[in-house]
Computed example of a mutant assay.
Amino acid sequence: LSSSAPFVAVMDADLQHDETLLPKMLAALKAGDRDLAVASRRTEGGAIGEGLSSIRAAGSNLANALAQRLLKVTLTDPMSGFFMLRRPIVDELAPKLSVQGFKILLDIVASGQGRLRIVEFPFVFRERREGKSKLDALVTFDYLGLLVSKYFGDLVSVRFLMFALVGASGVLVHLLALRGSMIGLGLDFNVAQTLATFVAMTTNFALNNRLTYRDRRLTGLAMLRGLLTFYAVCSVGVLANVGVANMIYQSEPVWWLAGTAGAAMGAVWNYAASSVLTWRRP
């Protein structure tokens, strides 16, 4: 978005990509019948070469298969980080793109919903010469979140999916802490429930700070302030949860419907409020 050029190329800086393809990609776009040119390791004539270990190659194959099957992407290599496109396409699709994740090509193609005219160029993925891979478990979670978000038509953001996943893990933490407090510490239920609630909120905060909001990660005193605001936000979320669940149950006494609606209301409140109060943008 910062470029004023009519065409924009994306490639890695670790020298694994074949820079000699750039003129060919540009020529294809200038011809006027293509919107996006992709350098592919998987089309005829392309190869992974020495660029990926056997484990990472297997992971890349799985990621490609998921993208092609779930999002109906026809690219041979949707995981490619080397492509060129018309600048107006960037302007058009930017509002639909995820603010998280690292596979922007897949995001662009999925957001284009089959309207982009694409041409692929084969290339051999070279061995990394500079830098280190950023691939880790957090990136994997981001990718899975992107798949789910695009599969459901961007109805929910990747960040909200991460937040909800952390919240679901908090239920397990809560139950374990509750059981441990009652048996291991000999506390009565009410005290153990209160302690388990704070344990779950603390672990949720830590995971969200590490995973969901890692681009706004809090440290030092800011992390302590963030934890306190997260406690406050989640406390109000409990009230919202119970209030909505009770209101629905009074009009329609179906326990699972009321419980689900209350949990959803609590999750939405916690996400919205913590985004503004706990992990607010600098």
Rank of each mutant, 00 (worst) to 15 (best):
R179K: 10
A168R: 04
M201Q: 11
R216F: 08
A192K: 11
N209R: 05
V171L: 11
V156S: 08
L195E: 02
T212R: 01
D215M: 09
A177Q: 01
T219C: 07
L178N: 05
G170A: 13
L161G: 12
L165T: 15
F160K: 01
D215H: 12
L224P: 06
Y213C: 03
G184W: 02
L195P: 04
R179W: 11
L155M: 14
M223I: 07
S181T: 10
V156G: 07
M162L: 13
R225K: 15
A222D: 14
M201Y: 15
M201K: 11
V199C: 14
D188R: 12
R225Y: 13
L227I: 07
N204A: 09
A196F: 06
R225L: 11
L224A: 15
R210K: 12
F189K: 06
L178S: 05
R159Q: 13
L155G: 12
S169G: 14
A192M: 06
L228N: 03
S157L: 02
L172D: 06
F163C: 00
N208A: 03
A177L: 04
T202A: 11
L218R: 13
G186Y: 09
A177H: 00
T229E: 10
S157Q: 05
T194K: 06
A177C: 05
G226A: 05
D215F: 11
M201H: 04
T203C: 08
F189Q: 02
I183C: 06
G167M: 08
S181Y: 09
L165N: 05
Q193D: 13
A168W: 10
S169P: 04
T219V: 15
R210S: 13
R179A: 09
T212P: 01
T203F: 14
L161E: 02
V173S: 07
M223H: 09
F205C: 00
F198Y: 15
L178Q: 07
N204K: 11
L207D: 04
T203N: 04
L224M: 14
L187T: 04
G167F: 04
R225M: 07
M223Q: 12
D215Q: 08
T219A: 14
R216L: 13
F198E: 06
L172P: 01
G186I: 10
L187Q: 09
L224E: 02
M201P: 00
L224Y: 10
A177N: 02
L211V: 15
L195K: 04
L187W: 14
F163G: 00
V171C: 08
G184H: 00
V171K: 06
A168S: 12
F189L: 10
M162C: 06
V156M: 13
G220H: 09
A164K: 01
A196E: 02
A192H: 10
S181V: 08
S181A: 15
V199K: 07
L185C: 03
N208I: 00
L165F: 13
T212M: 04
L175N: 13
T202M: 09
L172A: 15
Q193S: 14
L185V: 04
F163L: 01
V171P: 00
A164P: 02
G170D: 01
T212E: 03
T212S: 08
D154Q: 14
F160E: 02
V171W: 08
L185K: 01
F205P: 00
T197Y: 09
V171E: 07
L195M: 10
N204Y: 07
